[in-house]
Simulated assay, not measured.
Amino acid sequence: MMRNRTFILGATVLAVALTGLSAPSFAAKNKLMPEQRAERMIKRLDTSGDSKVSLQELQARISNNFKSFDTNGDGEISRDEIEAKRQAFREARKAWRDARAKTGGERDQAIARLREARPAMLPGMRPRAFARIDADGNGTLSAAEVAAATERIFKRRDRNGDGMIDAADFTRKV
């Protein structure tokens, strides 16, 4: 009887210990470290393949993103256009969640719609940032206002001032 209790107690302690050891590894998979986020961002924006992002590369990406938000083609982005993009993403994400349990074409279509609807990186997406970037105060963001904001963001991120953003700019403490 005593051996049985000792065995059960030992097995329980071992199970708890193994669970405690594996929990941090699961958490680490879900949350990226700053270096990993920087690496992913650089990989997405680096079109020249030099593991660095120049202002021109960033401006080109932001210009394409601007066009995806400017749905009426008037050369300006309104708060309504930003909200419409967000709403389309919410709907695509809901459709993807509903299709996750399914297989085949329906699931693939839901994933494609989700990727297409995903809001792109654009200065001014948040309400307070929108107001800051809207330099002329007309309630819309022009391509010039977004380009100027992108340049300010780039200069702030380029901590060593070499005209390129690389992994060192994300880890350098200023």
Rank of each mutant, 00 (worst) to 15 (best):
F130I: 12
I8W: 12
R37L: 11
K155M: 05
L58E: 03
M1C: 03
A38K: 07
G49S: 09
I77M: 01
M164T: 09
S51A: 13
I111E: 15
A101N: 14
N138K: 07
D74F: 02
K43G: 11
M125K: 11
K85L: 09
L32F: 09
A92L: 00
I133H: 02
Q87F: 06
S48H: 10
Q87K: 15
A143Y: 02
S78I: 09
D98G: 06
E106Y: 01
N160V: 04
R3V: 05
G124I: 06
T150A: 07
R93I: 06
A27G: 09
R3Y: 05
R37G: 01
R128T: 13
I77R: 00
M121T: 13
P34Y: 09
T71C: 00
V16H: 03
S68M: 05
K102E: 12
E76A: 15
A149L: 03
A11W: 04
F89G: 10
P127F: 05
G161H: 08
R3D: 10
T47K: 12
M2S: 14
A147C: 09
A168M: 01
K155H: 10
R115I: 08
S54M: 04
M125N: 10
F66M: 05
R113L: 09
K67L: 06
N65C: 06
S142Y: 08
Q56G: 09
F69G: 07
K43A: 13
A112Q: 12
D169W: 00
P24F: 03
A84D: 07
A167E: 08
R90N: 08
R159N: 13
E35D: 11
D46P: 05
F154I: 06
R40E: 14
F170D: 09
L55Q: 13
G75M: 05
T19V: 15
N64V: 01
M1I: 10
E116K: 12
L45Q: 03
S48R: 09
A117T: 07
R172Y: 06
E83L: 06
G137N: 11
F66D: 11
S51Q: 12
R93Q: 15
R115L: 12
K67P: 01
L21T: 14
S68L: 10
D108I: 04
R40Y: 01
T103S: 15
G137W: 00
D50Y: 00
F130H: 02
E91F: 01
D134Q: 08
A17Y: 03
I133V: 15
Q87E: 14
N4F: 11
A131R: 10
V16G: 06
L18W: 10
G105M: 07
K85W: 02
S25M: 09
P123W: 01
E116H: 08
M41K: 10
